[in-house]
């Protein structure tokens, strides 16, 4: 649906992006599952008066997986929102330089902070085999928590791909 400004092709970056998109589009089916789980929950509760905390939790599990893996997917489709007030009138070269500096100075440190701290976060959860705080909720909390490091690693990979693309284009001197 979103008409994304097509980025010029760079083979290696294209390959990485395709890989990330294949993962993203597979995970995206979580949203279909989410629709079905919600319907199931409503039917069970209203029809049979047996709403389940586990189903309620499964809903945000599915949503969270979709959101987190979406980050890298949206990066490869160049969909993250920019204030283009001036940006849209920059020359291609300026845009490449901004992109490279932005990724190196702003994005990568942020990703690194989240990634490295999330490792401990997941390890703790794994160590005590964390369960939902609701007695009849879902177990294996470390599994859903581990989407943080995995999805942020993918996001970092997507950023690397973008770096390769912009650097190549900058060297090539494309207009």
């Amino acid at each position: 649906m979103t008409e994304i400004e097509k980025l010029p092709s760079v083979p290696l970056a294209d390959g990485i992006d395709r890989f990330i998109q294949r993962i993203g589009l597979t995970v995206a089916w979580a949203y279909v599952a989410l629709v079905l789980v919600i319907i199931l929950q409503v039917v069970l509760r209203k029809g049979f008066a047996s709403g389940l905390i586990a189903l309620e939790e499964l809903q945000w599990h599915l949503y969270a997986v979709g959101v987190m893996f979406g980050l890298s997917y949206a990066q490869t489709t160049n969909s993250h929102i920019r204030v283009d007030l001036f940006y849209s009138s920059f020359r291609a070269k300026t845009k490449h330089v901004i992109e490279i500096l932005g990724i190196l100075i702003l994005v990568m440190p942020f990703i690194a902070i989240v990634f490295f701290h999330s490792l401990d976060f997941v390890a703790d959860s794994w160590r005590i085999n964390e369960h939902s705080s609701a007695p009849s909720g879902l177990g294996w909390r470390w599994l859903i928590k581990s989407t943080i490091p995995i999805s942020f690693a993918l996001l970092a990979l997507a950023m690397v791909s973008r770096l390769i693309r912009d650097f190549t284009l900058l060297m090539r001197g494309d207009a």
Partner: peptide
């Protein structure tokens, strides 16, 4: 219903949410 009491309510046929 929140906490351990929720398990009690469930045993009484109550659908619980938190």
């Amino acid at each position: 219903f929140f906490g351990l009491g929720a398990s009690v309510m469930e045993k009484l046929g109550v659908g619980t949410v938190q």
